[in-house]
Amino acid sequence: MELVMAILIGVLFTAAVYLILSRSLLKIIIGTGLLSHGAHLLILTMGGLGGLAPPVISKSVTDFADPLPQALILTAIVISFGVTAFMLVMAYRAYAVHKTDDMNQLKGNDEHD
């Protein structure tokens, strides 16, 4: 199972890197989304895949999974949700002002604004 997860995470990271290196702003944002998904899956895998064991300790349960990775992932998902939403708004505004979503056109420095 770990192997499948590792390959999946690798594929997600590859796709994310490809998208982030592209020129379109929207693709870049999708790329960052994939990157954080990969990171979340990585937390899940690194915390140990518990199988069917429940993430609680009680008297009848002898075999239990670590509940912490789930809490971490939830936190990380909320954060990446917020950041992605903010980035989308930003990208939209930048597109409205600059009339382009091509990163090459958005290079710019002080000399040629």
Partner: peptide
């Protein structure tokens, strides 16, 4: 509140 604010600000114009 936050999610609707974001959607309103994009959908507003």
């Amino acid at each position: 509140g936050a999610a609707i604010t974001i959607i309103q600000s994009i959908g507003g114009d």
